[in-house]
Design a protein around this nucleic acid. Structure first.
Length: 863
RNA sequence: GGGCGUUUAGCUCAGUUGGCUAGAGCAUCUCCCUUACAAGGAGAGGGUCGGGGGUUCAAGUCCCUCAACGCCCA
């Protein structure tokens, strides 16, 4: 039965087993399994328009390790993969690849041929295409990307069931996202409102709170001279970083306790340049120590302005349009002279307007000193290049507790339903939920994505009536309101008085991504499957998207299913450069995963990932991969040796049992490792399981195997105990390592077992300890033997002789009990140490502690 | 400003309810071609556990405080 190669190697095993695993379908999800026998994973769908990097390899390996563990524990593992092809990165990639742009007002053209397939010239003008055509091109392009991703993930050894694949822009995904949205709408969880909204002027879209980031930007405080309306000789100095918004000023605020401004509360001030009268109000959010302590409220300079505007019932005077430029129409309140001044700003960008305003202030003498340069945090869209503006627009929202204390409490409590790995990550969730200041804005003024599935009636003047949107029938989904028709209307009524208009917007990508359990589990069209896998057992993800992906999934599940969508959340850390900075592509020396697979083997790369404790940021380390490669190679060699030792069929068939102390003690130790590894993996701690297994493995190779190899090989001695123990330990260790090193373990398993190791049962302490009752102190005995062996080795090393050198005489001093034990188990020690004469000295049993010591006398070198 | 995390050998990190002389790998040095493996093996050196204070018979571990670094949120 020996199928052991002469020169074992892990090179090339990936291709062989990837193919075989696919053929044998060993990772196929058994959808007839009962819920309690299923382990379901809400895999993060990677963005296919990017490239796979080490961060993916890192975190997906962690998840795969867990999947493999539970599969060996007998669970039917629901392990799908998804491709995220809905969103800005894909939109950009499709535009740049085909030289097209999406225009939802256009009609679908069957058999459309894009002007380019790859690398359109820089000066090529994008050809506008309909949304359905754009999505078709997206499908075509992402299919290529997805192939590359899939190959890489297979090579990494992910035990994904590829038949469960889903994508986020597919018809099924659009139907799911639209169904979920319509049900939110029906229950009042989604609503539309005209309100101040964070707006990216370059992308031309509203942006949600979750997509914001602060960036430190240079700016300047400008000291502006307002005047008291009652007495224009009295000035009020206001410091502002955005003087260009003076025209949008609707009031001044100071802290209620600020003595400097008490006399002004309830009175009016006149703005610089334009001389518009604005009220002065007290408000606790005003910061007395910031600038002069009195702030200008504009439409809208920042989020605090929105709060003041709302709470103080201030006027609305928008000056910046959705394109980021000053609107042509000056606020009505302005005098004719002020309007002339304003006309100079019209059409300017915010930045140009600021420069011009400073000039104007200098002309009127209302800039009391030169601007004072500062750096301050400015809000950006995470993908944007210019600071966000706040404009008033009509948007769709889904309630998320940001404006509703009870819902917020409920969502916080949902966080308690999960077990967090590591547990402190729950703070981030609580922190985010507690800090929400508005509902979830889900509409986007973009073209590519899942359309908001609504139409609106038009009144007799052709104006939109937002109150009772027209919803599609369930069977009609997915719809594209820009081309599809609401029921009961005809195409010629589109845009006509008393007709209808489709909602032009799409949904935020998170509105689809928040439904990954529903997408993967086919909530809309396969309730049998969905009920088997939901709520899912685990959501693995990066900790940076707790506020987005994790939270939004929680919101949807809370509304739709009244339960947390998973039982566990497992958060991965980040990959850092060796210099502890977040790994970035811009470094130029990026190592691609496939290069590393080539160089070290997939198992070695997985080993590096599996060494990182859950949730801990980890340095990229090729050294660690080398160690993993060594481990895999060692496993091959060990297996070759053990199987060689037991190559004649006497071993397992005779029903031999471990009976030597050394063998029993080794198995007792191994049983402890099985116990620890199992407990660790049950708690999602793959790193601990690996560490314990690996430590045992090296000890097993270096000490145990060295001790017993002569006995196991020997013709003259009874080798059955050693052989059965070696085989048993080998089988257990191979299975313990299988989740981390799927290729190497499959290779060695194939030499002596039938079937895939990944379908073998997870080792137990019971099987490890079967057939014998070890005395309670066997491990102590083994420790003593190893201690003596260590002393012998040290002596030989210090004498600079080979470990094979003969020991003429060994004197062992120990307590009576240890001496008796050693005397009864001398054979292995004698073999391993090449010992000739051995003498025992019983130390005084009253002297404590009873130290074991060994005095080694080497045989004279033979020369 | 609030929250969270990290700080242990030159480097990367373990150290789970407080308890043997604080461990591993890499790196360094010495030695050994030994019939599973030289892609190996046997050893050695190297740490006032970030600083300070406290609790305790006993603190890397618990408490307080300070500092540095990182992340999230204002």
């Amino acid at each position: 039965m020996s199928r052991v190669p002469e020169k074992p190697t892990i090179d090339g095993v990936e291709a062989r087993f990837v193919k075989q695993w696919e053929q044998d379908g060993i990772y196929r999800f058994d959808r007839t399994a009962k819920r309690e026998n299923i382990f379901s994973i809400d895999t993060p769908p990677p963005t296919v328009s990017g490239s796979l990097h080490m961060g993916h390899v890192f975190s997906y390996t962690h998840t795969d390790t867990l999947a493999r563990f539970w599969r060996m524990r007998g669970k039917s593992v629901f392990y799908p993969m998804g491709w995220d092809d809905n969103g800005l990165p894909t939109e950009r990639r499709v535009q740049n690849f085909y030289g097209v742009s999406c225009d939802p007002s256009l009609k679908y053209v069957a058999g459309f041929e894009p002007p380019f397939r790859g690398d359109p010239p820089k000066d090529a003008k994008p050809v506008p295409v309909s949304r359905p055509n754009f999505i078709e091109l997206c499908d075509e392009l992402t299919a290529q990307d997805e192939k590359v991703f899939e190959d890489l993930f297979r090579r990494l050894g992910l035990s994904v069931d590829w038949s469960l694949l889903y994508t986020t822009i597919s018809e099924h995904a659009r139907r799911t996202a639209q169904s979920a949205f319509l049900r939110n709408l029906e229950r009042g969880e989604a609503y539309t409102q005209e309100a101040p909204t964070l707006w990216d002027v370059d992308f031309g879209t509203a942006v949600a709170q979750a997509e914001l980031e602060d960036r430190e930007r240079p700016g300047a405080f400008h000291k502006l001279k307002f005047r008291e309306a009652d007495d224009e000789s009295k000035s009020i100095i206001v410091e502002s970083t955005r003087p260009e918004l003076i025209a949008a000023c609707v009031g001044l605020v100071a802290h209620p306790d600020d003595a400097r401004y008490q006399h002004l509360f309830g009175k009016n001030a006149l703005t610089p340049i334009f001389g518009v009268e604005v009220p002065v109000h007290p408000h606790p959010l005003a910061q007395p120590d910031k600038g002069s302590g009195i702030a200008m409220v504009c439409t809208f300079g920042d989020l605090t302005d929105v709060i003041w505007w709302r709470e103080l019932n201030l006027a609305t005077r928008p000056t910046i349009g959705r394109d980021g430029r000053f609107v042509a129409q000056a606020p009505e309140i302005m005098s004719a002279q002020a309007q002339t001044q304003y006309a100079r700003l019209a059409g300017k960008s915010a930045k140009q307007a600021q420069t011009l305003t400073v000039e104007m202030l200098r002309e009127t003498g209302e800039l009391t000193e030169d601007p004072r340069a500062i750096t301050h945090p400015v809000k950006f869209y995470e993908k944007g290049d210019r600071p966000l503006e706040i404009v008033t627009s009509r948007q769709w929202y889904i309630r998320n507790g940001g404006r509703d204390e009870k819902l917020r409490e409920k969502l916080l409590a949902r966080g308690d339903e999960l077990t967090w790995h590591p547990d402190f990550m729950q703070h981030r969730y609580a922190n985010w939920v507690g800090g929400l200041n508005g509902d979830w804005l889900v509409s986007r003024q973009r073209y590519f994505g899942v359309p908001i599935p609504l139409w609106y009636r038009l009144d007799k003047n052709g104006e939109i009536i937002y109150e009772h949107p027209l919803v599609p029938a369930v069977g009609q989904l997915p719809v594209d309101p820009s081309t599809d028709m609401p029921q009961g209307f005809t195409p010629d009524q589109r845009g006509a008085p008393n007709g209808f208009a489709g909602d032009p917007d799409i949904m935020d990508t998170w509105a689809t991504s928040s439904l990954t359990p529903q997408l993967a589990g086919h909530w809309v069209d396969d309730s049998d499957l969905f009920e088997r896998i939901f709520p899912m057992d685990v959501r693995p993800q990066g900790h940076d998207i707790i506020r987005t992906w994790l939270f939004s999934t929680m919101v949807r599940s809370n509304f739709e299913h009244d339960v947390a969508p998973w039982k566990n959340a497992s958060l991965s850390g980040w990959i850092l450069d060796p210099d502890r900075k977040k790994m970035s592509k811009s470094k130029g020396n990026v190592v691609t995963p496939s290069d590393l697979f080539d160089q070290y083997g997939s198992d070695a790369v997985r080993y590096w990932a599996a060494c990182a404790r859950p949730g801990v940021d980890t340095a990229f380390s090729e050294d660690q991969m080398k160690v993993g490669r060594k481990l895999a190679t060692k496993l091959l060699n060990l297996t070759k040796f053990v199987l060689g030792a037991g190559s004649n069929e006497t071993t397992t068939s005779t029903g031999a049992q471990p009976k030597d102390l050394v063998d029993q003690a080794m198995l007792v130790r191994l049983a402890e490792v099985v116990d620890e590894a199992t407990t660790a993996l049950e708690q999602f701690d793959y790193a601990r399981a690996l560490e314990r297994t690996e430590a045992f493995f090296w000890w097993f190779c270096d000490d145990y195997v060295e001790l017993v190899k002569t006995r196991a090989y020997g013709e003259t001695q009874d080798s059955s105990s050693a052989r059965v123990s070696l085989h048993r330990a080998l089988s257990v260790v191979q299975r313990l390592l299988a989740p981390m090193l799927p290729f190497a373990t499959e290779e060695v398993w194939s030499w002596w077992q039938s079937g895939s190791i990944h379908r073998a049962t997870w080792p137990t302490t019971a099987e490890t300890l079967a057939g014998f009752n070890a005395a309670s102190d066997v491990v102590d005995g083994l420790d003593a033997i190893c201690l003596v062996l260590g002393a012998v080795r040290r002596t030989k090393t210090e004498a600079k002789v080979s470990q094979r050198a003969e020991v003429a005489k060994l004197v062992i001093t120990a307590d009576a009990k240890t001496v008796a034990m050693l005397q009864a188990n001398l054979l292995d020690l004698r073999n391993a140490g090449s010992l000739q004469e051995i003498e025992f000295v019983v130390s005084d049993s009253n002297s404590e502690p009873t130290n074991l010591s060994a005095q080694v006398t080497l045989a004279a070198p033979l020369n």
